[in-house]
């Protein structure tokens, strides 16, 4: 079986076995074990229905949304290295990203397009779930978690929209927060004041959006994604 002795020795070495408790997935037993023992794979059941592997069954939309989230986290972390959330520096940092940071422009493009794609794909995912009736009992709660995740996705995109500090960003956010002001009884004003840290979009708003975008919202999304996947698994999905 083992063509290569060195590799064989590696796979049976103590260190390797301490990391991967299962053998190579060449036997069904090892395949099952890799799902049991691997943290990343344990969101899946050991066996899946063949039907659900068909691409037209889910259009892979949920998985793509998760994939986009991973891409966004990675590119976002790299962008954070070059970006300072301050009115005087933010725009200049965008220019530096574009002109002098190695692959900076690529990172930013990737982050931007992935963000737009994630909103769209998450929405499509919701439609798919609706049209296949996958929200029906016992999956009601998971549908609710999904709706919250969609809202979080939009909020993530929206908070990131301000960070380049260009005209598009500034006025996009101003228009958006002005919409929120329409909430009656002064609640809207309070809400937008809380969000912006003032009455207009300025330095405070930039810092708040930065913290929301890079810390609070991603954490919340990750936790809810965990719940979402867990429920999918428990309710018999892939």
């Amino acid at each position: 079986m083992e063509k290569n002795k060195t590799l064989g020795r590696l796979f049976t070495s103590r260190v390797w076995r301490s990391v991967f408790r299962h053998g190579l997935p060449i036997s069904n037993r090892a395949r099952a074990e890799s799902v049991f023992y691997n943290f990343f794979l344990h969101v899946h059941p050991v066996k899946v229905r063949k039907r659900s592997l068909k691409i037209t069954y889910t259009w892979a939309l949920g998985g793509l949304t998760a994939g986009l989230f991973i891409i966004l986290t990675l590119t976002g972390a790299l962008l954070m290295l070059y970006y300072r959330p301050s009115v005087s520096e933010a725009y200049a940092d965008m220019k530096d990203l574009q002109f002098v940071v190695s692959s900076g422009l690529f990172l930013r493009n990737m982050h931007r397009w992935s963000a737009h794609a994630m909103v769209a794909v998450a929405f499509l995912h919701m439609l798919r779930v609706f049209y296949t009736g996958s929200y029906k009992p016992p999956k009601e709660f998971n549908w609710v978690v999904g709706v919250i995740l969609l809202v979080l996705t939009i909020l993530l995109s929206y908070t990131g929209y301000l960070l380049p500090w260009d005209q598009l960003a500034f006025w996009g956010i101003s228009v958006g927060t002005n919409m929120a002001r329409a909430v009656p009884f002064g609640i809207g004003d309070k809400m937008s004041y809380l969000l912006l840290g003032g009455n207009i979009v300025g330095e405070n708003a930039l810092v708040r959006f930065y913290v929301l975008h890079c810390f609070i919202l991603p954490i919340a999304t990750m936790v809810l994604m965990g719940v979402h996947f867990w429920r999918v698994r428990k309710d018999g999905g892939v």
């Binding site: 574009q98 002109f99 260009d166």
Partner: peptide, 17 residues
């Protein structure tokens, strides 16, 4: 012109923004 830029068009400020 755009001092930060390192491309001809951008540096000479011939871009839209």
């Amino acid at each position: 012109g755009q001092g930060a830029a390192t491309e001809f068009k951008e540096a000479h400020g011939q871009s839209e923004f």
